[in-house]
Every structure is written in C-alpha cells, then in structure tokens.
Amino acid sequence: MARLSGARYGRAAVWLAAGAYFLVPLACAVAFSVEDPRKGVDFEAYTGMFGADGFTGSLVLTVKVGAATVALVLVLLLPALITVRLTAPRLRTLVELVCLLPLVVPAMALVAGISAVLRWGPDHFAGTPLFDAFVGLQNPDFPGVLVLAYTLMALPLAYRTLDAGLAAIDLRVLVEAARACRASWPRTLVHVVLPNLRGALLNTAFLTLALVFGEYTVAAILGYQPFAVWIVVISGSQAQMSVAASMIGLLVTWVLLLVLAATGRARRTKETS
C-alpha cells in the first residue's frame, strides 16, 4: 500500500515537473502578450494582429508553401515507397538512408548550398529556359525554392510515418486482390492503398505542415517572409504582437492535432458500431 501511494506520488511529481516545464513559459508568454502597464489586461495584441502589416501576406505564403510541400512530399515518397515494397525490397535500406540524410545535414548547410546554386545558376544558363526556371523558383509570391528545401527537410519525418503506415497493412496482398478485381494501377492506388493509409497520410501531412509553420532559418536567410519569419521581424517593433502570434500558432497546431486524433477515433467507432 505504502509502495503504491509512493508510486502515485512519484508519478504526480513527474507530471508536475513536466507540466511546469511546458506551462510556465506558456503562461508567462500569454501574460506578457496581454499585459498593459496602464489598463492591466489588454487583448489589443490579439485583435490588432489580423490587421497588422504583413500578417495576411505571411500567413498566406506559409499556407501555400505548406500545402505545396505536403503535396510534393507525398507525390515523391508514396510511389517510391510502394514500388520498393512491392518490387525491390532490397532497395529499402538505400531509400531509408536517402530519406534520413537531411537529418544529418544542418539547415545552414542546406541554405548555403541552395543560395550558391541560385547565384551560380542564372549566370550559366542565361538565355536558356533553365534561366526562367531559376527565376520562377524564386518568385516571391510562391517561392518554389522554399518548397524544395522544406520537402527535403520533411523527408525523414514523412518517411518514418509513411513507412510505418505501409508496414501496418498487407500491401502486396491488397494490391494483388485489387488487381484481380480488375482495378488498374492508378485505381488500385486510389481505391485500395490510399484509404488504408489514411492515418499515415494525415500524420505525414500534419508533421510536414507543422515543420513548415515553424521553420525560420532557411526562409529568413533566403529572404522570404513566411509566418515564422514575420513573427521574428515584428518582435522588434511590436513584441507583444509577436508573442501573441506565436500563441495563436500554437493553438492552431493543437487544434489540428486534436482533429487528427478525433478523425482517427471516429473512424474506429464507426466501424465497430
């Protein structure tokens, strides 16, 4: 009995420590964002944020880049992983290695490489269609170069989640069963493989979006202003609003997480009812 309650106290202590570790800074941040030396509490930082200079632009840019990154990651990775699993299991280690490589390449190195290419490319390809491609990649309304960089950075996460999803289903049998039911390859993918990978796809999309929303280094150095960069930029002049924006970002992330968990659970209960 004594041991049991001892364990309970131990657990409570861990929870408390962990909670304090997460919540105290958050609470301080919230307090700071609503503090007003004259009126006491003031939500101006939150209300004024939506009209603030650059808010909409940076958010739209981030959402666009995020969506494009998710699409590119899935389009690149899913067919590759499925093909490897079905036809060349021995290549799996190689694919895994390639996908995990970005983990050991620091963002700074990536940026240095990208800017070098961007500087070098146009000079060499002036007058060719490649020149236009280089210019198009750096279009400030839709910087393709950011999408490419984020895709690379998201590969390790996406690989892990997708691979786990594929491992959880009997891919070969499902594919062959679909093919024997006269489904062509694309229809097999759409009607059988994707529905059974729903959870993994959602997870991948979420993690990739979270990465894009929080990424600062690459975007800042390449000179773009997505949401994360905007937050830092305004922190100089409007510190409160910058913190408020971070809080909103955090809140949105949590809501997304909850929605994700809820869709997974809703599906399961629907099936067993």
């Binding site: 289903i169 009997d170 062959e176 069963a177 093919r179 024997a180 006269r182 529905p195 059974n196």
Partner: peptide, 20 residues
Amino acid sequence: VPAHRRDTGMVFQSYSLFPH
C-alpha cells in the same frame, strides 16, 4: 496481358479483404 485484364478471380491464402 496485365493482371487486371486477365479475367481471373483469386482467393489468397492470407486474409485479403479490403479492410476499409
């Protein structure tokens, strides 16, 4: 002839129903 045009029906050793 590709598998989906073979006009064969198959039952597999392992359970192969589409789970969804």
